[in-house]
Write a protein that binds this DNA or RNA. Structure first.
Lengths: 154, 154
DNA sequence: TACCTAGTGATATAACGTATCAATAGATAG
DNA sequence: CTATCTATTGATACGTTATATCACTAGGTA
């Protein structure tokens, strides 16, 4: 394990330490700015934007430069430790979590549920036959009101 | 019908004239810049970006200011005459077409097929029961190689 | 035809993100 | 433990996409 991570591990939530280990295993250095971004990300339950991470970090006087926050987010996306969430109007939110998945996002408060099986396989087959395309990726995201906002909004 | 549209109608492709009429019916003025954008949009078969519209218009010395191109694109989106296409990495492309639909986009050349029935109804019901969310919108976009690029790429 | 106001163009501004590059800090060898 | 090497950082310039502002223009209507 990285020396720096070993030194800081006791002060870190388990989830953050595990993510940091995955960084190290992938050959990336575990640095202060990267740990800070991991902490910020794991402090947000649902979907978050880079700006929200920055605000959280600034409020705790732990903020790396904005460029490093973007770089870390990008790195985590590349390593599939972070998922980009696509919205109807914007595509600038992220959520911690491994591998391929989809999101059901509350349009009021940003609360989020992940789900894996999106059931587009038969649609994909059908369209491949009809159009001759070879389909290699898909985007499925759902939007609505979470139970809490549903209650509040009436 | 608008006087200006009546005057120019003979010079316009049918599809453009029909879109212009829908603008007029919705209470918007049919203007030179708006007609120019409609012509540019209908000249592009598949998905296009605002920059591509601008280049097409500049090449024909018919380009309105970039602000008006953006404004018109936005207006057409609001009126559901234009659809925003959400990509895996970017969401800055558009396609002409009415109402709710989805897109199958070639990741190499941008060719596009629209489809209406995305078959997420049962997924939506299932998730509403499981999560308590009230789902009101969805995003379903597919990506792959079109027949032509598939042939070229081997 | 004249008038009113929606619409336009030029440009400033904003949001989101990447490129550059000198300085720094984490990892490794000795 | 220290020196060294290079990945990483921060500051900032830049790029792209898009909206806000505001004086001016042109399309619709009486």
């Amino acid at each position: 394990m990285s020396r720096y991570l070993e030194m800081r591990r006791a002060t870190l939530p388990t989830a953050v330490a595990e993510l940091a280990e995955q960084l190290a295993e992938a050959g990336y250095k575990v640095t202060g700015p990267r740990l800070a971004v991991l902490q910020a990300a794991s402090a947000h339950r649902g979907a978050f934007s880079v700006q929200e991470l920055e605000q959280w970090l600034v409020a705790r006087n732990e903020s790396p430069g904005i460029a490093s926050i973007f770089r870390t987010v990008r790195l985590l996306c590349d390593l599939q430790l972070l998922q980009r969430i696509h919205g109807l109007e914007e595509c600038h939110r992220y959520s911690l979590g491994t591998g391929h998945s989809h999101h059901l996002v509350c349009t009021v408060c940003g609360a989020m549920e992940r789900f894996d099986n999106c059931g587009v396989q038969s649609l994909v087959q059908q369209l491949e036959q009809r159009t001759g395309f070879q389909i290699s990726a898909h985007l499925v995201e759902l939007f609505g009101l979470c139970p809490r906002c549903r209650a509040t909004a009436g």
